[in-house]
Simulated scan of single mutants.
Amino acid sequence: MLGVDGGGTKTACVAIAPSGEILGRGEGGPSNYQSVGVEAAEAAIAHAISGALAGVFEGRIGAIGLGLAGVGRSRDLEVIRASVDRLQQRPEFGDRWQLSPDKIAIAHDCAIALTGGVGANVGVATIAGTGAIAYGRNRHGATRRSSGWGYLLGDEGSAYWIALAGLRAAVRAEDGRSPATALTEAFRQHLELDNLQSLIELVYRRGLTVKEIAAHAAIVDRCARNGDAIALDILDRAADELLLATRAVFAPLFNPDEPFEVVTIGGAWKSQILRDRFCQNLHQIAPFASVIWPRHEPAYGAALLVLS
């Protein structure tokens, strides 16, 4: 059985035995067909599958689950099903598979993050990486999502949002428009700037990418751990925003006394302060919810989709 996690940066595949043991892993390039095109997406998925199957016994592939960014409409499912049909005919795979429709599962990337993270397709995944989104599914198959509008319109609580809030606090303090904060000197030193005015060239002329800005969320966390009030406030607000998205998902899906798990996924959760604040606040409004770390990777979750 194969599980494929395809995103805008890379594609991961795991080959899994019937026992659940991972037999092999492979990686390929981006496979969001909306951005790279169908042909390039298929090539990336094929490369990842080949890597996962390298060294694995020459048996037949029994099923495949794919969780792909950019797959959110019925038309997208048609496109990917056609891609899977072509993948099965690729010469590098010989006659190792010829799957019936019930052995092919296709979903968006949030669904496999939830399924892999919880180890089942029921619960909530609150993702806070470069972007932020919450996604959930209940025992009746109903789903809900919140946030995930991208860095211009939303993604509140994400690493990008935290880092940008930190940079804004630093320049406001530099001007005297806000209270002094350790963030000002922390950003200046980390970015090796002669003065904070140099941020203008760095951000606007050199064009720091969203991912590059998001990476600086760690500076906000470090200042917060050192007791900086402004940094602590930023993480408090981030926790509140992530809780809002999570609540918008679980409230319509689960009864108030119904136990469910919330899996926290993404680099922003490396901040223990952020996670502690989130857990404390969640427990107040959903005492039967349990916050967990991911049990499995998303590619593994994609394979589990075939079994659900």
Rank of each mutant, 00 (worst) to 15 (best):
H140D: 12
A170M: 02
V56I: 13
Q88K: 02
T9H: 05
D109V: 05
R172N: 04
E39L: 11
L167M: 14
G70M: 06
G6K: 03
F254S: 14
V210L: 04
G166I: 01
F278I: 04
S290F: 00
I104C: 00
R145D: 09
P101F: 03
D102L: 01
I104N: 07
V38C: 09
I61L: 09
I234C: 11
A218R: 14
T143Q: 08
R247Y: 08
I22Y: 04
A182Y: 00
P30M: 06
Q89T: 11
Q98D: 11
R277K: 13
G8H: 01
L235F: 08
L305F: 05
G8I: 04
S178F: 00
W149D: 02
G123W: 03
P298D: 06
V4K: 10
L196R: 07
E258Q: 08
V249H: 08
D233N: 15
Q88S: 14
S146G: 11
V79P: 05
G26D: 09
F288L: 09
C13P: 07
A159R: 05
S50N: 15
A239N: 13
L66H: 08
R139Q: 04
G136W: 03
D276S: 15
L305R: 02
G26A: 07
L307W: 00
V291I: 15
V56D: 14
W149H: 15
A134C: 15
H190R: 14
V262D: 02
G301Q: 09
R206I: 00
G123I: 04
E258C: 04
L66I: 13
G62K: 06
A163S: 08
C279I: 15
D236A: 12
M1K: 08
A125V: 13
G70V: 04
T184G: 08
G6A: 14
D194V: 10
A159C: 10
F250D: 07
E58P: 06
S19M: 12
A186N: 10
I273K: 01
G141M: 01
A302W: 11
E201I: 10
T184S: 14
G70I: 01
L235W: 05
P30T: 06
E212G: 15
A43R: 14
A224K: 02
